[in-house]
Design a protein around this nucleic acid. Structure first.
Length: 504
RNA sequence: GCCUCGGUAGCUCAGCGGUUAGAGCUGCGGACUUUUAAUCCGUAGGUCCUGGGUUCGAAUCCCAGCCGGGGCACCA
């Protein structure tokens, strides 16, 4: 044995039996002059190509077509002088190979039995045909180990525990079809969104992740430190203020698909890092950007699922298609409460309503807007399942939105609710730099008073706005949440590698 | 942050004060040339999450902590 090929004895002693045996097999294969990890293999067909080209074969029908195919071993059946092995590709396509002693020879078959385990990558070469039982197969005339797995596969007929799924997604992807599907579904959704934007002549840009002021949303940021300049930096909580700078500079139809970071709670609808789509359209408003959002979601559903009719894991269905419902926040809240709520309703009255409903609202008592939004979420938002635009928000909670064109005290903002969670939000953007400065200064006062989620004042953003931003519609949509809406899974299932606490 | 349920073999789980902690799959040895989670015979594999405590005796009961699921609170 060479030093490179030897597992240190001390480590090997601590290893569970099944891991130790596989390490020993690897070492033995290499010692005997074989390769456990060959650099290249003469692959001529993918598993999918063989299935597509020969799926029609009758049971027992053989061809003279020869293929070299590789895949991960997911089943092994040994009937003595004939072995069956099922190879799986990354998408979950499977193809059987048959190794007969009469074809590969006694030594090659014995080596196959000794060297190949479940989970290994295997290359087989041989004629394509169908077994007597009708299983499409490669009748191997030779085989080669493509990559030796040192760890056993989990049982493939039961799902991994939820913890193992996220901690070892690579295993989850091998074992669970839904995990494989989510990766492709997410990619197809993102592609659909991008292509839709490109068809509309939107320009995709990337704005800073590291920011000296984290603003553009009401959220607590992550902090970090830059050594070269010796300054504290924030991970962005939203791209909004930079996308607006771009609009000021003339990128008048602009979008970004990228990550935001918020240092807050994590649950089935919240992840500390999450993917966000934001888009701004000059000479649009919250109506045009709402229509755009509806089309983006519906087109993504059609492109990725083939339908706007979503079937959830529990079997229930709902439709993302058609014209989405619209409700006005104050009207729907008034209707739900059976009493009129307006921008004139006082904080004391709202607290009284909350108390009658048994809600703890004292920590929200800083202003009218927060109370109205909280009451609305409890009474209306949590129960909205069909996609619904909720329109016209209180001004206090929306410092970046322009005043409603006819209703005093409200702003032209909608939230898009689907299945009880907020999927997207859209504005008629506030472009008056004087009002914008007033709004952010008011937020700064809240921050100074201890509200650590008040929006920060970004002076350079205000200077940019003073160069005049055209009237615009803007929207932001949680990409992970779009996947949730399309699949019914929790946010951590939509993220390939979600943050997981390390074991102690 | 609070409440609640869970953490046992490589994987999925049972056992919930009383012999030496079990099952299925997996592994290892053997039989078998058409299997589909092959079958059959034999066999190995465990800091029972961690640390304290109670007890003649703890995987099991109590306390503290770590990690995870669900719910509440906060947030998108």
């Amino acid at each position: 044995m060479t030093a490179e090929n030897t597992t240190p004895a001390q480590a090997a002693d601590d290893l569970p039996e099944q891991l130790r045996i596989r390490r020993d097999k690897r070492a033995r294969i290499i010692d005997q002059g074989g390769e456990a990890y060959p650099v290249a293999l003469p692959v001529t067909h993918t598993v999918a190509q063989v299935r597509a080209g020969y799926g029609h074969l009758e049971p027992g029908q053989e061809t003279d077509d020869v293929a070299g195919v590789a895949g991960r071993v997911v089943f092994l059946r040994n009937t003595g002088k004939l072995c069956f092995v099922t190879l799986q590709d990354g998408e979950g396509n499977r193809l059987q190979a048959m190794l007969s002693q009469a074809v590969v020879g006694e030594d090659a078959l014995a080596a196959f039995k000794a060297d190949v385990d479940l989970g290994d990558h295997l290359f087989v070469h041989g004629r394509i045909g169908s077994s007597r039982r009708g299983e499409l197969s490669v009748f191997a005339d030779s085989w080669t180990l493509a990559s030796k797995s040192l760890r056993p596969l989990p049982v493939l007929h039961k799902d991994l525990s939820e913890e193992s799924r996220v901690r070892q997604r690579y295993v989850d992807l091998i074992a669970r079809p839904a995990a494989r599907d989510m990766v492709r579904l997410r990619a197809n959704v993102v592609r659909s969104l991008r292509e839709n934007f490109h068809r509309r002549d939107f320009v995709e840009i990337e704005t800073p992740m590291l920011q000296t002021i984290a603003s553009g949303a009401a959220a607590r940021p992550f902090t970090t430190h830059m050594n070269a300049y010796d300054i504290e930096l924030y991970l962005r909580i939203a791209p909004e203020l930079f996308l607006k700078r771009a609009v000021v500079g003339g990128v008048e139809r602009v979008f970004e698909i990228n990550r935001n970071f918020r240092n807050e709670g994590a649950d089935s609808t919240h992840s500390p890092e999450f993917a966000m789509l934001e888009a701004y359209e000059a000479y649009g408003d919250y109506n045009t950007i709402g229509a755009l959002t509806q089309n983006l979601v519906q087109t993504a559903a059609l492109d990725a699922l083939g339908t706007t009719l979503v079937t959830l894991p529990d079997g229930t269905e709902y439709d993302l298609g058609g014209e989405w419902a619209q409700v006005v926040m104050y009207d729907s809240l008034s209707e739900s409460l059976g009493e009129q709520i307006t921008t004139e309703t006082t904080v004391e009255e709202l607290l009284g309503i909350g108390a009658r409903l048994g809600l703890e609202l004292e920590h929200k008592a800083t202003n009218h807007g927060k109370l109205v939004e909280t009451l609305w979420e409890h009474r209306v938002g949590d129960h909205l399942t069909a996609p619904t635009f909720v329109r016209d928000f209180p001004v206090e909670t929306s410092p970046l939105v322009r005043a409603h064109r006819t209703v005093p005290g409200q702003v032209e903002k909608w939230d898009l609710y689907v299945r009880g969670f907020e999927l997207a939000t859209g504005y008629s953007e506030l472009v008056d730099p004087v009002i914008q400065r007033d709004r952010l200064e008011a937020q700064a006062l809240l921050a100074a008073a201890g509200d650590d989620e008040a929006m920060r004042l970004d002076e350079d953003f205000l200077v940019a706005m003073e160069y005049a931003m055209p009237p615009s519609g803007g929207m932001g949509m949680g990409l992970d949440r779009l996947l949730m809406a399309l699949t019914g899974y929790g946010i951590r299932e939509t993220i390939l590698f979600p943050l997981v606490k390390p074991h102690a």
